[in-house]
Design a protein around this nucleic acid. Structure first.
Length: 917
RNA sequence: GGGCGCGUAGCUCAGCGGUAGAGCACUGCCUUGACAUGGCAGGAGUCACUGGUUCGAUCCCAGUCGUGCCCACCA
């Protein structure tokens, strides 16, 4: 074995071996366990969030697979309509071509070509992470069968009156020329203005001043509204106003919606370009005037002077014209929420169009119910509040998109505009009794990407076919995802699952936090603080990292600042930590309900942990090679102790994985392997292997191997590669015949051995006492000591006797003896283990003053502890009210502190006298 | 305007009614035949603040301050 762990030499090798052997395919005899991978976008590449999420899912998957469950981790990708179309359009644009130039068919072909050539990036990256997904059943939302599922769902919802086509205001992206759902609109606060505009009264008695943030929509105004209870404007009601810059007049109406406190208390009403105004327009039967085209330029409804102008150009011109006409009273600065498309970043326009909608309430009600009644459980639980909040206010879902990449809507129109929905054109004809001579034209639009994602838990399992997979794995076990797509995806899967499968799509939803950079910032390309998980695995030179972070920026002027920050944060680049260290770090940080600041210190520590494990294995193999290892009952106390400790560790790890506390599970594994197995058991084994009996040596060798082997199995879900590599080596001396660790059984917890635990605890305390004396009194670590024991119990004598060899070896002790209770101990330094005095002969080793100082420190600590105990016990209310067990514990503490303090004091006084002489 | 979090060692985070923990960083000693990516021994915290409940509060409750996020049609 190499002297240190070299992850890069083994990771790729093992992954290929597993995949080629088909180990990721579901096969266990036990219950079904299924996780759906949230399908990444085909355009995407693996970022820290994916790596984190994939680690969680892989830990769960590998754990359940080892438990014997019939475990499926379903993988696949999402066609990501808008995102993908934008990428391909950008590529075309680079060649000077637009999608309209080449037409729909050619464009779709171009997207497929691009998907085939570069869509596999994430899949390759997932392999680097060790993700044990079932590649044989890889799915893509645009696959033939998944597309059929989409069509079926659309058709059925339509015929159930749960999908309808309607003309209303939608969020319109004037850059992408498509409608968006409410969720795809991101509102952020931006600086704007509030223009106060005078609308002349037709009776010639002056003006009414309205305040608006959007003067250009004035051309579509069809009323001015005031609050009915606003005394200032009582006389205006029913009056007509001249709409500036037009030859129209509009009425003044009253509506409770108007806030008298805001602006002037008069609101211009533009039903064609504002959601509130649209509603108010309906209430008052106002006409709707649309003054915009689909690219947000002013259309023929606007006066000729403004036609064809972009909305923002028109705004300037209109303001200028109003000012020239003396109709602009004032302009104020105003902070306001600006809605933008989440993909294009363009300011979204409320726009009156025909779109397809899902009538959501009938679907939402049962979806609320299943979370309320616990059929679906959020982890952590407080996310169900977020879910309920949104579900109770949910609005109909606009599902049509004016794009080319996606599932085309299965609706056809006859020349009169009548709608016919069916699986395909002939089905639509058949359903509606249309003869072949009626001309039909298919709807041009495609469906929102999330429409097909909503079907993912069953469409990937073969629905609507009768695949056995769907029986086997639906409902799935747990969904692992981020809070950001609870509305986009989680809620919609629940609604569709209930509607079409008659059951929940998953039983639990584990919501994890967001991975941020070390200073708590969200990672983003534009901030230049992105870490690539593969760079943490393989390492990266500083210069390469700088280049990577500063190329392809949307704002190239940020490059110098990013470079500077990068050089400061990573002066030596990033080391290669290996996949297992990265995974273990993610697991250790996967605490509930909190975002994660990714800290390089943690991954470095875990890389060291890998090396520790590696070297422990190296020691075990070196110590056991050339020996016949018979399976023996572990009889030695140390052997029984480590096994007992391991049982407890395993029980906790199982428990923590079960409650999605991978951080706690990882911590237990780390502590057991490092602080118990390596720090203690391996050290215990050394004296035995040197001078123990043949039987003791055999038991020790077997325990070394078997505890390591068990630890590897427990650790495997977290660190698949190193555990496999070591397991393959130690299965030989253990004569195991499994092919791979990933198909071995996850270890079960056994009984605690109280006797062994208290014995070894005693041994540890004695050794720690001796070590403390050495360190505090600056005795050379290698220097052999003479020690003595005094005034212990018979149990102490028994243990001293049984562990004499271990004490001699690990304490570096030359000679030891028991002293009578009254014997002179002035030549010793003392450590106390309960009543037992462990005495280290000082002669010639140390200054008496140093020992006095050391004892003083110990006494002070003991005294303050004693005082605390005494104070508590002196409080009668404590003694009366606290549970008896607590009081008992406290009395025990008091006695222990008293004894210890007395022992220290006695030694201190003796030495002090010696010093004075 | 609603809702959800967070504030514990220098840093990143666990813990959560009975004497505060880990990793990294720090100090001292140590290249001892698994491992210096290491060993041993240490130092380090008014658990944001103020009240309340309790025999006892870092933990429960109320409020304050700081901080982050989500949702929301005041032009």
């Amino acid at each position: 074995m190499e002297k240190s762990y070299q992850p890069q030499t083994i990771e790729g090798r093992w992954y290929r071996a597993w995949e080629e052997a088909g180990h990721f395919a579901p096969h266990g005899p036990g219950e079904s366990y299924c996780i759906m991978l949230p399908p990444p976008n085909v355009t995407g590449s693996l970022h820290m969030g994916h790596a984190f999420q994939d680690t969680i899912m892989d830990v769960l998957t590998r754990f359940h697979r080892m438990k014997g469950d019939n475990t499926l981790w379903q993988t696949g990708m999402d066609h990501a309509g808008i995102a993908t179309q934008m990428v391909v359009e950008r590529q075309l644009a680079a060649q000077g071509v637009s999608r309209r130039d080449i037409g729909r068919e050619k464009f779709e072909r171009a997207v497929w070509e691009w998907k085939d050539s570069s869509g596999g990036t994430i899949a390759r990256q997932m392999r680097r992470l060790g993700a044990s997904v079932d590649w044989d059943n890889d799915r893509f939302t645009m696959d033939e069968d998944l597309s059929q599922a989409v069509t079926k769902v659309f058709v059925e919802l339509y015929h159930d009156d749960l999908i309808y086509r309607g003309k209303r205001l939608v969020n319109w992206d004037p850059v992408l020329h498509t409608a968006l759902s409410d969720l795809e609109v991101i509102s952020t606060e931006e600086n704007g203005h509030l223009w106060h505009i005078c609308y002349p009264r037709v009776d010639g008695k002056g003006y009414v001043v309205v305040a608006t943030t959007r003067p250009e929509t004035l051309l579509g105004d069809t009323a001015v509204a005031v609050n009915p209870d606003d005394p200032r404007y009582n006389d205006l009601v029913g009056l007509k106003l001249e709409l500036p810059l037009t030859d129209r007049t509009i009425p003044v109406i009253t509506d409770k919606y108007v806030d008298a406190e805001f602006g002037t208390g008069c609101v211009k009403i533009t039903p064609g370009h504002d959601f509130n105004d649209y509603e108010m327009g309906k209430r008052h039967s106002l006409p709707v005037i649309n003054v915009l085209d689909d690219d947000a330029t002013l259309n023929e409804q606007a006066p000729p002077a403004y036609r064809g102008l972009d909305r923002f150009v028109a705004r300037k011109k209109i303001v200028a014209d109003l000012e020239a006409a003396g109709l602009l009273e004032k302009v104020e600065r105003h902070k306001m929420m600006i809605p933008r498309g989440d993909r294009s970043g363009a300011v979204v326009e409320p726009y009156l169009t025909d779109q397809w909608y899902v009538k959501i309430q009938p679907l939402a009600d049962p979806a609320i119910e299943v979370v309320e009644n616990g059929s679906i459980r959020f982890v952590p639980e407080n996310w169900n509040k977020t879910y309920f909040d949104w579900m109770h206010r949910i609005e109909d879902w606009c599902i049509s998109r004016q794009l080319w990449w996606g599932h085309r809507i299965p609706a056809w129109y006859d020349p009169d505009g009548n709608i016919f929905v069916g699986y395909d054109e002939s089905d639509a004809r058949k359903r509606h009794g249309l003869s072949d001579d009626v001309q039909l034209r298919q709807d041009e639009d495609v469906l929102d990407t999330w429409f097909s994602s909503a079907l993912w838990p069953f469409s990937t399992l073969g629905w609507p076919g009768d695949s056995p997979r769907i029986q086997q794995y639906y409902p799935t076990s747990v969904l692992v995802t981020g809070f950001d797509i609870i509305f986009f995806w989680v809620a919609r899967m629940i609604m569709m699952g209930l509607k079409f499968m008659g059951d929940v799509p998953f039983r639990e939803v584990y919501i994890h936090g967001l991975i941020r950079d070390a200073s708590g910032q969200k990672m983003s390309k534009s901030k230049g603080n992105v870490l690539d998980p593969l760079d943490l695995i393989d390492g990266i030179e500083l210069e390469t990292l700088v280049t990577k972070r500063t190329t392809g920026l949307m704002q190239p002027q940020m490059a110098p600042a990013i470079e500077k920050a990068t050089r400061k944060d990573f002066p030596d680049g990033i080391q290669a930590f290996g996949c297992d260290a990265l995974r273990f770090t993610f697991a250790a940080l996967a605490t509930n309900g909190r975002d994660i600041r990714f800290d390089l210190g943690r991954i470095e520590g875990n890389r060291n942990f890998c090396n520790k494990l590696w070297n422990a294995a190296r020691y075990v193999l070196m110590s056991t090679q050339d020996h016949e290892i018979g399976p023996v009952g572990a009889t030695g106390s140390c052997d029984r102790w480590i096994i007992s400790r391991q049982h407890q560790m395993i029980a906790r790890v199982q428990e923590h994985i079960g409650s999605y506390r991978l951080d706690l599970a990882a911590q237990r594994l780390y502590e057991f392997i490092w602080n118990e197995y390596c720090d203690w058991y391996l050290e215990f084994s050394k004296p035995v292997l040197q001078s123990g009996t043949a039987a003791e040596q055999n038991a020790t060798r077997y325990t070394l191997l078997s505890v390591l082997e068990t630890s590897l199995r427990a650790l495997h879900p977290f660190m698949p590669f190193i555990t496999e590599e070591i397991w393959q080596r130690i299965k030989i001396p253990l004569a195991l015949d499994g092919e791979t660790i990933m198909l071995q059984e996850f270890p079960g917890a056994g009984d605690i051995d109280k006797q062994a635990e208290s014995d070894i605890s005693w041994l540890q305390q004695v050794l720690q006492g001796i070590r403390n004396i050495r360190a505090e009194l600056n005795v050379a670590p290698g220097k052999k000591l003479n020690i003595a024991f005094q005034s212990g119990t018979s149990a102490d004598r028994d243990r001293q006797n049984r562990f004499a060899e271990l004490l001699r070896g690990l304490g570096k002790i030359d000679d030891s003896q028991w002293l009578d209770d009254g014997a002179d101990t002035t030549g010793y330094s003392v450590a106390l283990v309960a009543d037992l005095k462990v005495l280290v002969a000082l002669k010639g080793l140390v200054d008496i003053e140093d020992e006095l100082a050391r004892l003083t420190k110990l006494m002070e600590k003991e005294l303050s502890n004693l005082k605390r105990s005494e104070a508590k016990l002196a409080n009668s209310r404590f003694v009366e009210n606290a549970p008896p067990a607590v009081v008992e514990t406290e009395r025990g503490r008091q006695l222990a502190h008293q004894a210890k303090l007395a022992g220290l004091k006695e030694q201190f006084e003796k030495l002090e006298q010696l010093g004075e002489r």
